[in-house]
Amino acid sequence: MMSKFVDFNCGVVLPASGTGERMGMCTPKQFCTVLDRPLIVFTISTFHRLPWIKFIIVTVSESCKDMMLQLVTDYNLHKVTVVAGSPTRHRSIYNGIKAVAGVCSAPDVVLIHDAVRIFGEEDLIRDIALAAHKHGASGVTRPLISTVIASDSDGMLTESLDRSQYAASEMPQGFKYHVIKQAYEKSTDFDFDYGTECLLLAKKRRWCESCIVAGKPYLWKVTHKKDLHAAEAMLKEQFLHVAILPTAGQDVLVDTLERQLCTALRSEQVKVTSEIITQSHSEHANTFIHIHSSLPSNRSALNPATHPCGDRLLFDHCHIHVFMLEPTQVSDQHHQLSVHFKQLAIQLKGQHFMVYAVLAQTTESCEAVSAMVKHLVIHRSTALSGQVFLV
């Protein structure tokens, strides 16, 4: 049985030089935004959070190089090296392979992945790396959804393949460093200009057999504009975790809010807790709902930056403060809170925090207050950060 421990130097090459013509947008699809982040940031985070991934090389076109370097700075992507790409996929990957020796003194395995395949579980990535280390090359597949057919020049059916005998090649793929390096060194101009399948290149140019690993349904890539909406929904389903921090006397509101959120999210994504967990584990909360029965005497406590709560690479951490006040207090405090939260949002700019306030009267229904908070949780608009909402 193969060990599940990665005890060798492993890194990633991400070709990201494409123009994304099928997306039909001016922006290359890897830089299209979802949840206020370019897609490529989510893809990089898939590997960046794994301690056994030693380096990530991203190949981009010259026109996007400065943009990519700025993302490296903005999100503290210390494992990432940015190099120039090329017009074709294989040439871009080869540029990344040639850069490997400069960032890792003794690379063993290189994983190749698509910049717009934003999902990946550690177990699968590890299986690909281990299989590549053992066999020389490895890849992941998914069953074909549709039957593949061929037609002649007159548009008439000529062949229909047996779907059970074929599979769709997905990413990531893994290679021993010397295998993929030598495969590219022996490649022809035809390979570079028209090839797309790295496993086939390794087989043709290095006679290296590839171990195939069965993949999972999330192994899809963003191709069309509509896929951006699917990506956002899947990211929220996988990574959005909410902590409700209650206060004495607001049990009905807490119960109502928990119930409403659990109808919109999975129940395991919502927790009622007494404290902010500060570790960076992916299942720890990134959205915090603070329930207040009175105004805090020290308003600096409302600043989320005072809570160094975890990794903000995947999601801006969202803090929603709900103030349940007596009717006579609401009008008096609205302006002051609006000024405070607006200044707070300006202060937090660039730190990957969002902050909102919901100001409600104690006579207001818990259903209405919870509906407002749920909307803020689900839609997570950075443009609205710093706003105070009256219910």
Rank of each mutant, 00 (worst) to 15 (best):
His281Leu: 15
Asn303Arg: 06
Ser370Ala: 15
Met324Arg: 09
Lys4His: 12
Ala137Leu: 03
Phe353Lys: 00
Arg266Phe: 12
Thr88Ile: 05
Phe192Ile: 10
Val252Glu: 12
Asp7Ile: 03
His290Glu: 09
Glu122Pro: 00
Met234Thr: 08
Tyr356Pro: 05
Phe119Asn: 02
Gln343Asn: 14
Leu39Trp: 01
Thr382His: 14
Arg89His: 10
Val377Glu: 05
Ala168Pro: 00
Tyr356Ala: 06
Ala301Glu: 12
Leu245Phe: 06
Gly120Trp: 08
Gln250Thr: 09
Val252Met: 14
His229Gly: 13
Glu232Pro: 00
Phe31Tyr: 14
Thr263Phe: 07
Asn286Val: 02
Cys318Arg: 12
His335Phe: 15
Ala167Asp: 04
Cys211Gly: 02
Pro246Arg: 06
Ile212Glu: 09
His375Cys: 13
Cys208Thr: 14
Ser17Asp: 10
Ile56Thr: 09
Phe42Cys: 08
His379Thr: 09
Thr263Gly: 02
Ala264His: 10
Leu14Thr: 02
Asp227Gln: 03
Phe353His: 05
Gln387Asn: 15
Pro308Arg: 03
Thr328Asp: 13
Ser365Lys: 07
Asp191Gly: 01
Asp108His: 13
Val110Gln: 06
Val72Asn: 13
Leu219Lys: 07
His178Glu: 11
Ala129Asn: 00
Arg126Tyr: 03
His135Pro: 08
Val41Ile: 14
Cys208Lys: 10
Arg91Trp: 04
Val377Ser: 02
Val377Ile: 04
Ser297Trp: 07
Thr256His: 02
Val252Leu: 11
His48Tyr: 07
Lys54Met: 11
Thr81Phe: 05
Val116Arg: 04
Asn298Glu: 05
Cys198Ala: 14
Gly11Phe: 02
Arg266Pro: 06
Ile212His: 08
Lys98Leu: 12
His284Leu: 13
Ala101Met: 10
Met354Phe: 08
Val58Gln: 08
Pro327Arg: 05
His78Met: 06
Ile277Arg: 10
Ile53Asn: 00
Lys204Tyr: 13
Val12Phe: 01
Ile180Glu: 06
Ser92Cys: 01
Ser267Met: 11
Cys211Asn: 14
Gln182Tyr: 14
Pro107Leu: 04
Val373Ser: 00
Val80Cys: 11
Gly249Ala: 03
Phe389Ser: 08
